[in-house]
Design a protein around this nucleic acid. Structure first.
Length: 240
DNA sequence: AATATGTGCAACCGCGATAAC
DNA sequence: CGTTATCGCGGTTGCACATAT
Protein backbone atom coordinates (compact mmCIF):
# COMPACT_ATOMS: atom_id res chain seq x y z
CA UNK A 1 0.00 0.00 0.00
CA UNK A 2 2.69 2.46 0.93
CA UNK A 3 1.96 4.98 3.57
CA UNK A 4 3.57 8.28 4.42
CA UNK A 5 5.79 8.16 7.50
CA UNK A 6 4.12 9.40 10.63
CA UNK A 7 6.75 12.04 11.31
CA UNK A 8 6.51 13.77 7.98
CA UNK A 9 5.14 16.94 9.52
CA UNK A 10 7.84 19.51 9.99
CA UNK A 11 8.45 20.79 13.46
CA UNK A 12 8.35 17.37 15.06
CA UNK A 13 11.30 16.90 17.37
CA UNK A 14 13.60 13.96 16.78
CA UNK A 15 16.56 12.43 18.55
CA UNK A 16 17.22 11.73 22.22
CA UNK A 17 14.49 12.51 24.72
CA UNK A 18 15.05 15.08 27.46
CA UNK A 19 14.05 14.36 31.05
CA UNK A 20 11.35 17.04 30.76
CA UNK A 21 9.80 15.26 27.79
CA UNK A 22 9.99 11.97 29.65
CA UNK A 23 8.21 13.51 32.61
CA UNK A 24 5.45 14.94 30.42
CA UNK A 25 4.89 11.60 28.72
CA UNK A 26 4.92 9.63 31.98
CA UNK A 27 2.50 11.90 33.78
CA UNK A 28 0.16 12.06 30.78
CA UNK A 29 0.01 8.28 30.40
CA UNK A 30 -0.36 7.78 34.15
CA UNK A 31 -3.37 10.09 34.15
CA UNK A 32 -4.99 9.22 30.82
CA UNK A 33 -3.45 6.04 29.49
CA UNK A 34 -1.88 6.14 26.06
CA UNK A 35 -5.09 5.73 24.07
CA UNK A 36 -4.44 6.78 20.50
CA UNK A 37 -0.71 7.14 20.10
CA UNK A 38 -1.01 9.44 17.15
CA UNK A 39 -3.19 11.85 19.09
CA UNK A 40 -1.19 11.58 22.30
CA UNK A 41 1.65 14.04 21.66
CA UNK A 42 -0.76 16.83 20.81
CA UNK A 43 -2.89 16.12 23.86
CA UNK A 44 0.14 15.82 26.13
CA UNK A 45 1.82 18.89 24.69
CA UNK A 46 4.81 17.11 23.18
CA UNK A 47 6.52 18.04 19.92
CA UNK A 48 6.99 14.40 19.04
CA UNK A 49 5.19 12.03 16.72
CA UNK A 50 3.03 9.33 18.23
CA UNK A 51 5.36 6.66 17.03
CA UNK A 52 8.27 8.19 18.88
CA UNK A 53 6.18 8.51 22.05
CA UNK A 54 5.08 4.90 21.86
CA UNK A 55 8.65 3.71 21.36
CA UNK A 56 9.95 5.80 24.24
CA UNK A 57 7.26 4.51 26.56
CA UNK A 58 7.56 0.85 25.59
CA UNK A 59 11.34 0.69 25.51
CA UNK A 60 12.29 3.00 28.34
CA UNK A 61 9.63 4.63 30.49
CA UNK A 62 7.26 1.76 31.24
CA UNK A 63 7.31 1.11 34.99
CA UNK A 64 7.80 -2.64 34.65
CA UNK A 65 10.99 -2.36 32.62
CA UNK A 66 13.84 -4.33 34.12
CA UNK A 67 17.09 -2.47 33.61
CA UNK A 68 20.67 -3.64 33.88
CA UNK A 69 22.71 -6.50 32.45
CA UNK A 70 21.14 -9.70 31.28
CA UNK A 71 21.79 -12.70 33.50
CA UNK A 72 23.31 -15.86 32.08
CA UNK A 73 19.93 -17.49 32.49
CA UNK A 74 18.26 -14.76 30.43
CA UNK A 75 20.92 -15.02 27.74
CA UNK A 76 20.46 -18.75 27.58
CA UNK A 77 16.70 -18.30 27.27
CA UNK A 78 17.16 -15.84 24.42
CA UNK A 79 19.48 -18.20 22.58
CA UNK A 80 17.08 -21.09 22.96
CA UNK A 81 14.05 -19.03 21.95
CA UNK A 82 15.91 -17.56 19.00
CA UNK A 83 16.67 -21.06 17.85
CA UNK A 84 12.94 -21.85 18.00
CA UNK A 85 11.46 -18.54 16.83
CA UNK A 86 14.12 -16.84 14.75
CA UNK A 87 14.23 -13.03 14.73
CA UNK A 88 10.79 -12.68 16.30
CA UNK A 89 12.03 -10.34 18.98
CA UNK A 90 8.60 -9.40 20.29
CA UNK A 91 7.75 -13.06 20.79
CA UNK A 92 11.04 -13.63 22.56
CA UNK A 93 10.50 -10.53 24.72
CA UNK A 94 7.11 -11.87 25.75
CA UNK A 95 8.90 -14.76 27.45
CA UNK A 96 11.24 -12.45 29.35
CA UNK A 97 9.28 -10.24 31.74
CA UNK A 98 10.60 -6.70 31.98
CA UNK A 99 12.71 -6.97 28.83
CA UNK A 100 11.82 -5.23 25.59
CA UNK A 101 12.15 -6.52 22.07
CA UNK A 102 14.53 -3.68 21.28
CA UNK A 103 16.77 -4.51 24.21
CA UNK A 104 16.80 -8.20 23.33
CA UNK A 105 17.58 -7.37 19.72
CA UNK A 106 20.49 -5.20 20.87
CA UNK A 107 21.84 -7.87 23.19
CA UNK A 108 21.55 -10.40 20.43
CA UNK A 109 23.49 -8.32 17.95
CA UNK A 110 26.13 -7.11 20.38
CA UNK A 111 26.77 -10.16 22.56
CA UNK A 112 25.00 -13.36 21.74
CA UNK A 113 25.64 -13.42 18.01
CA UNK A 114 29.35 -13.24 18.70
CA UNK A 115 29.07 -16.11 21.14
CA UNK A 116 27.29 -18.23 18.59
CA UNK A 117 29.79 -17.24 15.94
CA UNK A 118 32.55 -18.53 18.18
CA UNK A 119 30.38 -21.53 18.81
CA UNK A 120 29.94 -22.16 15.08
CA UNK A 121 33.66 -21.79 14.56
CA UNK A 122 34.24 -24.32 17.31
CA UNK A 123 31.63 -26.64 15.84
CA UNK A 124 33.18 -26.35 12.41
CA UNK A 125 36.66 -27.02 13.74
CA UNK A 126 35.40 -29.86 15.90
CA UNK A 127 33.54 -31.51 13.04
CA UNK A 128 36.58 -31.16 10.84
CA UNK A 129 38.81 -32.51 13.56
CA UNK A 130 36.52 -35.42 14.31
CA UNK A 131 36.13 -36.13 10.61
CA UNK A 132 39.88 -36.29 10.28
CA UNK A 133 40.15 -38.60 13.26
CA UNK A 134 37.33 -40.69 11.88
CA UNK A 135 38.95 -40.95 8.48
CA UNK A 136 42.13 -42.05 10.15
CA UNK A 137 40.28 -44.66 12.23
CA UNK A 138 38.33 -45.84 9.18
CA UNK A 139 41.51 -46.25 7.27
CA UNK A 140 42.86 -48.37 10.08
CA UNK A 141 39.58 -50.22 10.70
CA UNK A 142 37.23 -50.34 7.67
CA UNK A 143 34.49 -52.11 9.71
CA UNK A 144 33.74 -48.96 11.72
CA UNK A 145 30.02 -48.16 11.69
CA UNK A 146 28.98 -45.05 9.70
CA UNK A 147 25.88 -44.56 11.95
CA UNK A 148 28.06 -44.33 15.00
CA UNK A 149 30.13 -41.66 13.36
CA UNK A 150 27.05 -39.64 12.43
CA UNK A 151 25.76 -39.64 16.00
CA UNK A 152 29.12 -38.49 17.24
CA UNK A 153 29.10 -35.57 14.87
CA UNK A 154 25.50 -34.63 15.61
CA UNK A 155 26.40 -34.07 19.25
CA UNK A 156 28.68 -31.20 18.36
CA UNK A 157 26.35 -29.59 15.87
CA UNK A 158 23.66 -28.85 18.47
CA UNK A 159 24.12 -25.09 18.59
CA UNK A 160 21.87 -24.66 21.62
CA UNK A 161 23.98 -27.04 23.62
CA UNK A 162 27.06 -25.31 22.30
CA UNK A 163 25.74 -21.93 23.38
CA UNK A 164 25.18 -23.33 26.83
CA UNK A 165 28.75 -24.56 26.87
CA UNK A 166 30.01 -21.13 25.91
CA UNK A 167 27.95 -19.36 28.59
CA UNK A 168 28.89 -21.87 31.24
CA UNK A 169 32.55 -21.70 30.39
CA UNK A 170 32.42 -17.91 30.61
CA UNK A 171 30.91 -18.27 34.05
CA UNK A 172 33.87 -20.46 34.96
CA UNK A 173 36.25 -17.78 33.82
CA UNK A 174 34.36 -14.98 35.54
CA UNK A 175 34.34 -16.93 38.77
CA UNK A 176 38.09 -16.96 39.10
CA UNK A 177 40.65 -14.21 38.96
CA UNK A 178 43.51 -16.61 38.45
CA UNK A 179 45.58 -15.59 35.45
CA UNK A 180 46.62 -19.21 35.07
CA UNK A 181 43.19 -20.27 33.96
CA UNK A 182 43.23 -20.46 30.17
CA UNK A 183 40.75 -18.32 28.31
CA UNK A 184 37.85 -20.03 26.61
CA UNK A 185 39.56 -19.86 23.23
CA UNK A 186 42.52 -21.59 24.73
CA UNK A 187 40.32 -24.33 26.10
CA UNK A 188 38.41 -24.78 22.89
CA UNK A 189 41.16 -24.32 20.35
CA UNK A 190 44.13 -26.12 21.85
CA UNK A 191 45.44 -26.97 18.41
CA UNK A 192 46.15 -23.30 17.81
CA UNK A 193 48.54 -23.53 20.71
CA UNK A 194 50.24 -26.55 19.30
CA UNK A 195 48.50 -28.97 21.63
CA UNK A 196 47.07 -32.11 20.16
CA UNK A 197 43.55 -33.42 20.69
CA UNK A 198 44.65 -36.21 22.97
CA UNK A 199 46.38 -34.11 25.59
CA UNK A 200 45.13 -30.55 25.86
CA UNK A 201 46.08 -30.01 29.47
CA UNK A 202 42.42 -29.17 30.17
CA UNK A 203 41.37 -31.02 33.33
CA UNK A 204 38.43 -33.28 32.76
CA UNK A 205 38.85 -33.19 29.00
CA UNK A 206 37.98 -36.88 28.80
CA UNK A 207 34.63 -36.34 30.53
CA UNK A 208 34.03 -33.33 28.32
CA UNK A 209 34.59 -35.40 25.20
CA UNK A 210 32.43 -38.17 26.61
CA UNK A 211 29.48 -35.80 27.04
CA UNK A 212 29.98 -34.50 23.54
CA UNK A 213 29.85 -38.00 22.16
CA UNK A 214 26.78 -39.00 24.16
CA UNK A 215 24.92 -35.77 23.46
CA UNK A 216 23.79 -35.72 27.10
CA UNK A 217 23.61 -31.96 27.57
CA UNK A 218 22.28 -32.10 31.13
CA UNK A 219 25.11 -34.32 32.25
CA UNK A 220 27.47 -31.94 30.55
CA UNK A 221 25.93 -28.99 32.38
CA UNK A 222 26.54 -30.85 35.66
CA UNK A 223 30.10 -31.27 34.55
CA UNK A 224 30.38 -27.51 34.00
CA UNK A 225 28.79 -26.87 37.39
CA UNK A 226 31.38 -29.07 39.04
CA UNK A 227 34.09 -27.28 37.13
CA UNK A 228 32.62 -23.94 38.19
CA UNK A 229 32.53 -24.91 41.86
CA UNK A 230 36.07 -26.18 41.68
CA UNK A 231 37.43 -23.32 39.64
CA UNK A 232 40.06 -22.60 42.27
CA UNK A 233 41.63 -25.99 41.64
CA UNK A 234 42.38 -25.01 38.07
CA UNK A 235 45.45 -23.23 39.28
CA UNK A 236 47.22 -26.53 38.75
CA UNK A 237 46.90 -26.05 35.03
CA UNK A 238 50.05 -25.82 32.97
CA UNK A 239 51.08 -22.40 31.73
CA UNK A 240 49.68 -21.61 28.31
C1' DA B 1 47.58 13.86 25.20
C1' DA B 2 45.54 13.23 20.77
C1' DT B 3 43.52 10.40 17.51
C1' DA B 4 41.53 6.16 15.65
C1' DT B 5 38.72 2.33 16.26
C1' DG B 6 35.35 -0.52 18.58
C1' DT B 7 31.15 -1.21 21.29
C1' DG B 8 26.60 -0.54 23.26
C1' DC B 9 22.35 1.37 23.08
C1' DA B 10 18.48 4.53 22.09
C1' DA B 11 15.93 5.99 18.47
C1' DC B 12 14.37 6.12 13.67
C1' DC B 13 12.52 4.14 9.35
C1' DG B 14 9.82 1.37 6.45
C1' DC B 15 6.70 -2.26 5.90
C1' DG B 16 2.99 -5.67 6.85
C1' DA B 17 -1.19 -6.58 9.40
C1' DT B 18 -5.43 -5.11 10.72
C1' DA B 19 -9.07 -2.16 12.33
C1' DA B 20 -12.06 1.59 11.07
C1' DC B 21 -14.60 4.01 7.83
C1' DC C 1 -15.45 -4.23 -0.53
C1' DG C 2 -11.99 -0.89 -1.27
C1' DT C 3 -9.42 2.75 0.94
C1' DT C 4 -7.20 4.88 4.69
C1' DA C 5 -5.30 5.28 9.39
C1' DT C 6 -2.99 3.23 13.05
C1' DC C 7 -0.28 -0.08 15.39
C1' DG C 8 3.46 -3.08 16.08
C1' DC C 9 7.49 -5.31 14.44
C1' DG C 10 12.18 -5.99 12.63
C1' DG C 11 16.11 -3.86 10.48
C1' DT C 12 19.16 -0.19 10.60
C1' DT C 13 21.42 4.06 11.91
C1' DG C 14 23.88 7.34 14.55
C1' DC C 15 25.74 9.01 18.68
C1' DA C 16 28.15 8.71 23.09
C1' DC C 17 31.40 6.45 25.54
C1' DA C 18 35.35 3.13 26.11
C1' DT C 19 39.53 1.27 24.68
C1' DA C 20 43.59 0.87 21.87
C1' DT C 21 47.40 2.93 19.42
Amino acid sequence: MGRAPCCEKMGMKKGPWSSEEDQILISYIQQNGHGNWRALPKLAGLLRCGKSCRLRWINYLRPDIKRGNFSGEEEETIIQLHQQLGNRWAAIAAKLPGRTDNEIKNVWHTHLKKKLKNCDQFTHDQVRKESNVKMQVDAENPRNSPQHSASELSSVTDSSAMARRIIKSEQVLESSESSKIPKIDEIFWPEELGLDNENTGFPGIEEFQKFQESGDVDAEMDFWDNLLSGAGELQDLPDF
